[in-house]
Amino acid sequence: MSKIQSRPVPAHVAIIMDGNGRWANARGLPRTMGHRKGVEAVREAVRTAGGAGVRYLTLFAFSSENWRRPEEEVSDLMGLLKMFIRRDLADLHRENVRIRVIGDRDGLRSDILPLLVEAEETTWNNTGITLVIAFNYGARDEMARAVRALAIDVANGRLRPEEITPACISARLDTAGIPDPDLILRTSGEERLSNFLLWQGAYSELMFVPELWPDFTRDVFLSALERYAARERRFGGLSPQPRAVAGS
């Protein structure tokens, strides 16, 4: 495990980026301006995580439920995603960032899917921090797709029902090969997971910060990592018992 100021740093941080719309509303701006400001926070978060020694940073960019938002807002979000990849891909590649995209790709727009594939393929061999973008992602949908894949294997005789283990399920999730998040963080003060990494987050530390996503600065991120370092993770076990001192 890497360290910051001699304290443990989570290998994998996952963030629910919440509060763009409220940030804009508080300033009398269109919601789209909040999303644009949020892109700047994404860049800062990637730099901060990489500098702190975090190996995986997962950002909840667009959920499978977000399609229900007003068409104008969805269109603007798609435009921002395309702009981010086109403008930032070269910089991320130069900084040795590896990009991976999770979420359902079936039915994605023809102007979006090739960009996501390009981002992954361009950075595939990079060895720095892995930036995982959760796009058109929903944890229940992810688990349903994994179960369907296992059911097909059982039906075709490639797998027996009694052979299905948690490891088998994990291997069929979008995050296969990515360690479970040590820390799941949500901005804006809301305290729920909103269908995000429900399987993978079984033993994640949860943290909810009051700052809206556009205000999620380097200092706020580093403060969250310091708070994480002070927590004791037991994974269902007991706390380590202190050793007896001679003569006590």
Rank of each mutant, 00 (worst) to 15 (best):
T123A: 05
E95G: 10
R148W: 10
P240C: 10
I102L: 04
I129V: 13
N126V: 09
G236L: 08
G34C: 06
G189P: 04
A45G: 06
E40K: 11
F221R: 03
A155P: 09
E120F: 05
R148C: 13
P181I: 06
I184F: 02
N125K: 15
V13K: 04
I169M: 15
T175K: 02
R160L: 12
S2F: 13
L116C: 07
Y228W: 10
P242N: 10
F135N: 05
I112L: 12
M33V: 11
L198I: 11
A14L: 02
S75M: 14
L238Q: 14
R109L: 15
S110K: 15
L150F: 09
A244K: 12
W199N: 03
F208W: 07
E142G: 03
R87D: 15
N66T: 08
L238W: 12
F62M: 05
T217K: 04
A149R: 08
T187G: 03
E205C: 11
A52R: 04
L92K: 01
R86G: 12
R27C: 08
G38I: 04
R192K: 11
V147D: 08
R186K: 11
W23G: 01
R227D: 14
R7I: 08
F208C: 06
Y228R: 03
G201W: 03
D180N: 12
T123W: 02
T187W: 01
R27D: 06
R218C: 09
R218Q: 13
E71S: 14
A90F: 13
F221N: 04
S63F: 00
A144S: 13
D141G: 13
D182H: 09
R55I: 07
C168V: 12
E191H: 12
G28D: 09
A24S: 07
A151T: 14
I184T: 01
E118P: 04
R233T: 07
L89A: 05
S6Q: 13
L80G: 04
T58V: 02
A24H: 01
R158K: 15
E120G: 03
E72N: 14
L159P: 02
R27Q: 13
V101I: 11
T48E: 02
E120S: 03
A14N: 01
R105D: 08
L81R: 00
D174S: 14
E142L: 05
S188G: 07
R192C: 09
S248Q: 11
D219K: 11
R27N: 08
A144L: 14
P114H: 08
R227G: 11
I16P: 05
A230E: 14
Y228P: 00
S110W: 13
Y56V: 07
H93C: 13
T123Y: 01
D111T: 07
F135P: 00
G201N: 07
P242R: 10
I15C: 02
R98L: 06
V13Y: 05
I164K: 06
V220F: 02
G34F: 00
L80K: 00
T165R: 12
N125H: 15
H93F: 12
I112A: 05
A119V: 04
E120K: 02
V209D: 00
